[in-house]
Amino acid sequence: MSVIYLLISISIFVAVAFFIAFVIAVKSGQYDDDYTPSVRVLFDDELKKVKSEKLKKLSDYKKTSDS
C-alpha cells in the first residue's frame, strides 16, 4: 500500500503545478480586468472591405471638399 505515498505526492505535485500556473496568470494581469476579455472574444475579424468604387467616391468627395 505504500503506493499511496507515490500517488499522493504525484497529485500534490500536479496541484502545485496548477497553483504556480495560477500565480503566473495573476502576475501577468489576467485577473485585473474580467469584463473586457469577455467582449473581446466575440469580435471576429471585423474589417470591412470598402468596395473600390466606394473608395473612389470617398476620395472624390475629399477632393471636392478640399478645393
Binding site: D32, D33, D34, Y35, T36, V39, L42, E46, L47
Partner: peptide, 27 residues
Amino acid sequence: CSSCIWILENLQRLQRGISISQVNFID
C-alpha cells in the same frame, strides 16, 4: 460599450507606430 472596446483595440490600424492597445472596460 463594446464598440468603444473594438475601436480602441484597433488603434494600430489608424496610426503607425502603435503596436498594441488594450482596453480595461471597468477602469
